[in-house]
Amino acid sequence: MSEALAAVETAGTDLSVPAVSGARQFWRRLRAQRAALVAAVVVALLVLVALAAPLLTALEGQDPTTYHPTLIDSARGGVPIGSFGGVGADHWLGVEPQTGRDMFARLVYGARVSLGVSLGATLVQVALGVAMGVAAGLGNRWVDLVLSRVTDIFISMPLMIMALALLAIVPGSFPRPVLVALIIALVSGWATTAKMVRAQTLTLKNLDYVAASRLSGWSTWRTAVRELLPGLAAPVITYAALLIPSNISVEAALSFLGVGVKPPTPSWGQMLTSADVWYQAAPQYLLLPALALFVTVVAMTVFGDGVRVALDPRAASRLRIGTGRKREARVDTAVPSGEQRKEDRP
């Protein structure tokens, strides 16, 4: 608190300078947070695994869809034969109960679905959200009123319910993962993004430098592209980074309910659907997808938070989750001082 008092006095206007979103500064601030760094490594590994899924399964010599009836005990309802659900040299993480499909292959391909669907959904959400938000922020009174009302309605719709309902009426011929991604995107996320972008646009629109650009003779359109959009980048990226883990959870939940990604396409949520029946006979069938989901969402969340801190250290210092506070503070105070106290003595 008297930090504030001190800051006003010692640094003059320096601390109120908006964060410059230089890439170098971003990396430096991101590197300063240990938790975010670890999370970034985990996220990178997950992406790598998802991309290299065919390679990895080829290495194991399995694929995610082949049934192995010989590896399950049909007399006992389909429990995998062997210890830990059939773990061995051929099946690194064992096989699925009932079907005998290879667990490792299904997990690895599940990462593809999980990350692919959530990333796709996030892209749609961000594109739609930015378009609607900017239009509402820059448009006249009526455009703003209509768009804001539509946005509010989508915000107040219960996401899971709408997604479920929509999945009921869309014809089954549509490629399922794309459909799931689209539906997740359309019923959620974009509306809150739009609301945030609108607020941000309204703030930016009234900044003096935007007025100055117009006075320079630039058109409104050019001013919006040159002066407004770059200002939106940081908050939108931050928001997107936090939408990804939430989308992963929603996809998993829909698949868990049996209305998301349909078999034979593997998905972590779907694998958990009948896991409670098998947890005693094949605990890895429950634990592996649950762990995969947990690690992915935690890593994405922590990473997203790190991105937020790196992009806007001042907002983050108020809203942080408690990662790497002290170092961050040092990085920030290092920036002003020196250069800036050269006073006006032309």
Partner: peptide
């Protein structure tokens, strides 16, 4: 363009993401 303005707040009157030369060159 023949009527210009100088603003109050030296922080918000320059785009923090653009070099000062770029801002001056705008007109």
């Amino acid at each position: 363009p023949a009527v210009q303005m100088v603003f109050q707040d030296p922080v918000s009157s320059l785009n923090p993401r653009r070099s000062v030369g770029e801002s001056i060159a705008d007109p």
